[in-house]
Design a protein around this nucleic acid. Structure first.
Length: 193
DNA sequence: AGCGGGATTTTCT
DNA sequence: GAAAATCCCGCTT
C-alpha cells in the first residue's frame, strides 16, 4: 500500500481532529450494519495538560501510545465509555475524542442499545458509545477492519466548521481544540458557543 | 429553565 | 480521599 488514506492521522492531533469531521464510522453488529457520520471531535496530545497521556503512560492509556488508526476506549465517572481515534506517531500518546455523530444507517439497531430517539441517540461522547455498543472489548481495535471501520471521506468545507474550547475539562481550557459541524443538531449539548 | 446529586473506575495527591 | 474528556433524573423557580 503506497498511499494509505489513514496517513493524515500521523499529523498533529489538532489536524486529525479537523480532518475527521464528516468521516464515517461503520459498525457491524451481528447481521446489521450501522453507519454514522462524525460531527464533533476534540484533540488531545502528550504536551496537553488535559490529556490522559500527559507526561505519563499507564495501563489505561497504553493504547494512546500505540499506532494511529486504532481505537482508545476509556471508562469514566464509574458509568460511561468514551471512544477516541489514536493519532500521531507511536510513543507520542495522542488521540481524537469522538464527541458526537449523526446516524446514517441502522438507527433502529442503535435504539436497541440506547433507548432514546432523535438527537438524544448520539449527541454526546458516552451516548454514541452506548448507541454503537462500544465498550472496553474494542479498546485497541484497528479501525481498518470489521466490526468497526473508519471510512475516510473528502475534507469538509472550512466554512462548515466551528471551533471552541473543549468541554468538561479544567486544565488547558485556553486551547481551542474542539471542532464541530456548524448548525448540526447532533452537536453535543454540553456547552453553548 | 436551571440546579444538584448519584453512579462508582482509574489515576493522582 | 477526591477529581475526572458524562449523563440522567428529580426538585425548585
Amino acid at each position: 500500500m503506497t498511499t494509505d488514506n489513514f496517513d493524515f492521522l500521523n499529523k498533529s492531533a489538532e489536524h486529525a481532529a479537523k480532518r475527521l469531521l464528516g468521516c464515517i464510522l461503520e459498525r457491524q453488529l451481528g447481521d446489521e450494519i450501522v453507519r454514522v457520520k462524525i460531527i464533533e471531535t476534540e484533540a488531545y496530545d502528550g504536551t496537553d495538560a488535559a490529556s490522559h497521556s500527559y507526561k505519563r503512560r499507564t495501563p489505561r492509556t497504553d493504547i494512546m501510545f500505540g499506532p494511529a488508526g486504532h481505537l482508545y476506549v476509556y471508562f469514566t465517572y464509574g458509568m460511561h465509555y468514551c471512544c477516541n481515534i489514536v493519532v500521531g506517531h507511536e510513543d507520542v500518546g495522542a488521540a481524537v475524542l469522538i464527541r458526537a455523530v449523526e446516524p446514517i444507517d441502522g438507527e433502529a439497531t442503535m435504539m436497541t442499545f440506547r433507548r432514546k430517539t432523535g438527537v438524544l441517540l448520539t449527541n454526546g461522547p458516552a451516548k454514541l458509545c452506548q448507541a454503537l455498543s462500544i465498550d472496553k472489548q474494542l479498546n485497541g481495535h484497528s479501525l481498518r477492519h470489521s466490526p468497526l471501520k473508519l471510512i475516510i471521506t473528502p475534507p469538509i468545507d472550512p466554512s462548515q466548521m466551528q471551533k471552541s474550547s473543549r468541554i468538561g475539562i479544567s486544565r488547558a481550557k485556553e486551547k481551542k481544540w474542539r471542532f464541530y459541524m456548524k448548525d448540526n443538531p447532533y452537536v453535543s449539548s454540553g456547552q453553548k458557543q
